[in-house]
């Protein structure tokens, strides 16, 4: 058996990579992809804990399904917003979308 810590480390690294992407990327779609990466990292974490600690019940796996569904809905919504911004501002660079400022 692969020790639990490996899964958790993987999940942590993936989460950090996703976080870096959210904060550092300029392209809106790439930020979205990083968010997805974070969500998937969380999924790995949930399933690992569930499989290793309470193997008879599938609480983590069921919760991971929920997360996938939420991620999917959220991506659809986010992409619509990006397209709307692109249509009005002709850019997908989040640095340039800063009207709501002082």
């Amino acid at each position: 058996m692969i020790p639990l810590e490996h899964f958790l480390t993987l999940s942590g690294i993936l989460f950090s990579l996703g976080l870096f992407g959210v904060l550092a990327r300029r392209n809106a779609v790439l930020i979205l992809m990083s968010i997805e990466l974070m969500l998937n990292a969380v999924n790995i974490n949930l399933v690992a804990f569930s499989a290793y600690l309470v193997s008879t019940e599938f609480v983590g796996q069921v919760f991971a399904l929920f997360v996938i569904v939420v991620a999917a809905a959220e991506v659809g919504l986010a992409l619509s917003i990006i397209i709307a911004i692109y249509r009005s501002r002709a850019t997908s660079n989040v640095d340039e979308v800063d009207l709501m400022k002082w």
């Binding site: 904060l23 550092a24 989040v94 979308v97 800063d98 709501m100 400022k101 002082w102």
Partner: peptide
């Protein structure tokens, strides 16, 4: 304090973190 409202997404993301 208004200078915190930069309008930039990544600033807000950092604040959340």
């Amino acid at each position: 304090l208004r200078f915190h409202e930069t309008g930039k997404l990544y600033n807000y993301g950092l604040a959340i973190l």
